[in-house]
Design a protein around this nucleic acid. Structure first.
Lengths: 251, 251
DNA sequence: GCAGCACCTTGATCTGAATCAATTGAGAGT
DNA sequence: ACTCTCAATTGATTCAGATCAAGGTGCTGC
């Protein structure tokens, strides 16, 4: 079985060592759409051909950069990816953090070029999907097309979240609840996890100063909402945190 | 020629009065994708069947409301549409203004329900597209599928624009330049146009207080950047305005 | 060990925009 | 003309969070 030629990166694991067995990685955002849709071997085989497992990327290594030609989207299999742009004064604007199971690169479709940078915050492995091939395949697999539409549409909504004018506390609460839920959805603890990003990254994401992030953490800790030590975070009072985040997350 | 049954609204103009001639409205976001793709009559006829010209909606009339079941997207043919949500304190958060040629409803795909309200700011007419039918058709018309992906991806980027933390002046400049360009793209004047929305709408869109909008307008006028009287706006110094907007629009 | 460094915290001060408050202006209806 | 109402302006004051400034803390490498 051959793999479509992509960017020349070392492959972390072969897609299929044996001749006939197909492996879908459980974290991959498309596996459900593909397995559920009851397609025969030809389609599944074709899908495999367009998938490429890449990585690992080391901490600080870039996955793509602003202006790079777009030809593939990728699902995170492990690690955390940060996307960002630099504004004209050189300050970093973090657009998002992507955990296992989440898809990066969707905003590049319209331009044909990546509109932002993507960097690994820790050791990152990805599933890479050639977009042209995927689009062609989507034409024959309604489930896949629907999944693509859904993912794209979701991201429009997500981007609107951090657009509102909320207080530093509300933004931070929403950020922590969001992380908690996303980790929980992947089977990790919902109440205790590592912050894989720096305080500055969080600040740039929430449109706050790094000092403000520090102060909010202190306030939350003094109020018994969290326990935070360096990158290790524990949610002590999830209900109260949800309540704080409510207005941002619109529930 | 029959029109697929949609929401029971009066149709502004028949899609095709005669038996064989096809009319694409020039403002419709999909017309180019369809006409360019060199498809035969069967496909074009099918596309027509899923299009419905609806309206006019009167000022203040709602096109859809948050929570409504999603079954169609729509391209604005005339007028201005505002989309918004109410936050938990009842304050209105304006998500966008849609001018002729622009598409509303895309963020609803992922949920199957509209996540926001859409209201007419003046007299509005739309092209309505049944989304399920459109998705099915997209499977056979790669140009249409690509156009849909492009539109969705574009909106992700747009939403990120107003997310940055910019000054009131920068936000306003970016807003005015954006309006100017979008009007110009449709053949209207790039330097003089009507603000179809209230100051409060602008404020809620730019995440400012209405008073701040008023003050920015005053400042811009005193600086000779614009002339604004009631809803009538003229850009007097476009280059300087572009410069102000530069950091927001990322150029 | 300790030097170097990046990350983080804490305190003092400053500031842009929000809020509060009052007035003016324009259209719609009578 | 007149009132009613909603939109818009203008000024005074307040406040959340930025910025400035000065340590602290825990790595990594020598």
């Amino acid at each position: 079985m051959r793999v479509s030629a992509g960017t020349p990166r070392k492959r972390a694991s072969p897609i299929a060592d044996d001749g006939d067995e197909f492996h879908f990685c459980s974290t991959c955002a498309f596996s459900a759409a593909c397995l559920d849709s009851g397609y025969g071997k030809p389609e599944l085989r074709e899908l495999h051909v367009l998938v490429e497992h890449i990585g690992p990327f080391k901490e600080g290594e870039h996955i793509f950069r602003e202006g790079d030609e777009f030809n593939a989207i990728a699902a995170v299999r492990g690690g955390t990816v940060k996307t960002y742009v630099n504004d004209l004064e050189g300050r970093e604007q973090v657009q998002g953090f992507f955990l296992p199971g989440e898809v990066i690169g969707l905003s590049a479709i319209s331009q044909g070029r990546y509109p932002c940078n993507a960097v690994a915050l820790d050791s990152v492995v990805l599933c890479r999907f050639s977009f042209p091939t995927m689009a062609a395949l989507a034409a024959r697999m309604p489930g896949l097309q629907a999944q693509l539409f859904r993912l794209l549409s979701q991201d429009i909504g997500k981007a609107a979240l951090l657009a509102g004018n909320y207080s530093a506390d509300e933004r931070m609460a929403a950020f922590l609840i969001s992380l908690s839920r996303r980790y929980a959805a992947r089977g990790f603890s919902a109440t205790r996890f590592q912050l894989t990003m720096t305080r500055t990254d969080i600040a740039n994401y929430l449109r706050l100063a790094a000092e403000s992030v520090s102060r909010v953490f202190r306030r939350f800790q003094d109020d018994g909402l969290i326990r935070v030590e360096r990158r290790d975070l524990e949610l002590l009072d999830r209900p109260r945190m949800e309540e704080l985040a409510r207005s941002v997350l619109r529930e």
